[in-house]
């Protein structure tokens, strides 16, 4: 996945919903890990976009969208901490064990699902910066600005997130 890094035009809400829905949904899905929560998050994000478009300053539009999406996601995480609910993974049985019986071709085909499942094993504090950096390609500075945390914190969280993923990938 790569992002459109700049745009000087401010699109209408309809344009955003239609033109950028795939980007927003992808970010939401990578953060939530299941389609049900991703759909709810996209709805909330589009409402926030509608409210925010009037104040949007032309620039990195997808950066702005990803910031709204990650903030909305983190708001939901905070609410869920107050009212814990059981997550419902879409297809929990698709986890790929590293057994020799699994062909390389099948493993390659199902790699995105496997990686997504591994992403979901990270706590949100690590998952969000890892997704922003490695999946979406934002810089450390942009992520620090997105999340309003020091760049050193961003770097350490990404390092720790990657480390945990590496450990799970090598099992």
């Amino acid at each position: 996945m790569s992002t459109d890094q700049s745009s000087d035009l401010v699109p209408s809400w309809d344009d955003v919903a239609h033109t950028h829905s795939r980007f927003i949904y992808s970010v939401a899905y990578r953060l939530c890990g299941n389609h049900h929560d991703a759909q709810d998050l996209v709805q909330e994000v589009l409402l926030r976009v509608r409210r925010g478009l009037a104040n949007y300053q032309p620039g990195n539009f997808e950066g702005w969208l990803s910031r709204i999406t990650t903030n909305a996601f983190l708001d939901r995480v905070r609410k869920q901490k107050r009212r814990p609910t059981q997550p419902l993974p879409d297809e929990p049985d698709r986890y790929i064990e590293g057994s020799p019986g699994v062909s390389a071709e099948i493993a390659q085909r199902d790699l995105p699902d496997h990686l997504q499942e591994l992403l979901m094993t990270l706590v949100p504090e690590y998952r969000v910066p890892v997704v922003l950096k490695d999946v979406l390609g934002f810089s450390y500075e942009e992520i620090a600005d997105h999340l309003d945390i020091p760049i050193g914190t961003v770097r350490s969280r990404i390092h720790r997130g990657r480390s945990r993923l590496r450990d799970k990938l090598s099992v």
């Binding site: 996945m1 992808s26 899905y29 990686l115 890892v130 490695d134 999946v135 390609g137 990938l169």
Partner: peptide, 8 residues
């Protein structure tokens, strides 16, 4: 690896 994740 993560960079290769596709859009959804």
């Amino acid at each position: 690896l993560l960079g290769g994740l596709p859009f959804v």
